[in-house]
């Protein structure tokens, strides 16, 4: 694998050609905000938080799926990028009910953290608040669609790591919903192993352990890079 050098925010860095901009930036200590990305799962470039500017291209590229190239000059923080990222967050807060004060993940939420980091003090767009369901049929876990940001982490971890593929997305556009099995109650899914990985990778309070009160749900993700590596070695 060829080794290349490139510049991120003016800093010279070296990289392997199969690495993504996000990988390389992380190694260089440059922080690019992410939401749908999680270490250990295939990246899908869905949330657009990690978009960066690449010199010579007028298109913004997601850092998580864009491979580095020799001589690339990448900028991760510009006024334009910051504005767009903030608008992405605004859109998410306007899309469903994300009232932190009554959420089990209050204080331990990736969306909330991003909102604070991006100084999102209020939402200018009208709230859409669609009527969404709660599925608490599983013995240990609960799904609250109101908090879901459709990052598809649950879909990916179940498919790629657990190998069960219980989760998927149904519907489209703003009507999209994560579903279990063939859009049946979680408890009726024949394939769910109740491993709980989906709950741990969920960035918000959409998936939680039952019995948690406001702010009590903390997530543990240390297992993921380890298991992902083991899966990778196995292949």
């Amino acid at each position: 694998m060829a080794v290349t050098t490139l510049k991120i925010d003016g800093k010279e860095v070296s990289a392997n050609e199969d690495e993504t901009i996000l990988d390389v930036a992380f190694q260089a200590g440059i922080k690019i905000p992410t939401l749908c990305h999680i270490e250990g799962l295939t990246d899908i470039g869905a949330c657009r938080m990690c978009i960066v500017e690449v010199a010579g291209s007028n298109k913004l590229q997601p850092a998580c799926t864009t491979k580095v190239k020799d001589g690339m000059e990448i900028t991760t923080q510009t006024a334009r990028l910051k504005k767009y990222r903030k608008m992405v967050l605004e859109m998410l807060f306007s899309e469903r009910n994300h009232v932190c004060a009554v959420c089990v993940s209050n204080g331990n939420c990736d969306l909330q953290t991003l909102a604070v980091e991006h100084d999102l003090t209020h939402v200018r767009m009208p709230y859409l608040y669609p009527k969404t369901e709660i599925d608490a049929s599983h013995e240990w876990f609960a799904l609250d669609q109101n908090r879901c940001v459709l990052c598809q982490r649950c879909v990916r971890v179940c498919d790629e790591i657990e190998g069960a593929h219980v989760w998927d997305v149904s519907g489209r556009g703003v009507q999209s919903r994560v579903i279990t099995g063939l859009n049946e109650p979680w408890a009726d899914s024949d394939t769910c192993t109740s491993c709980g990985k989906c709950v741990q990778v969920c960035p918000t309070g959409a998936l939680s352990n039952k019995g948690k009160a406001t702010g009590e749900m903390t997530k543990h993700r240390e297992f993921l890079p380890y298991l992902a590596q083991r899966r990778h070695d196995h292949k």
């Binding site: 657009r48 992405v88 859109m91 489209r172 556009g173 703003v174 009507q175 999209s176």
Partner: peptide, 18 residues
């Protein structure tokens, strides 16, 4: 576009509705 957005990325999913 609202009807046909797949819903994967946020700008298209929510932006078109807004």
């Amino acid at each position: 576009c609202v009807e046909e957005s797949c819903g994967k990325c946020i700008p298209c999913r929510v932006g078109t509705v807004q």
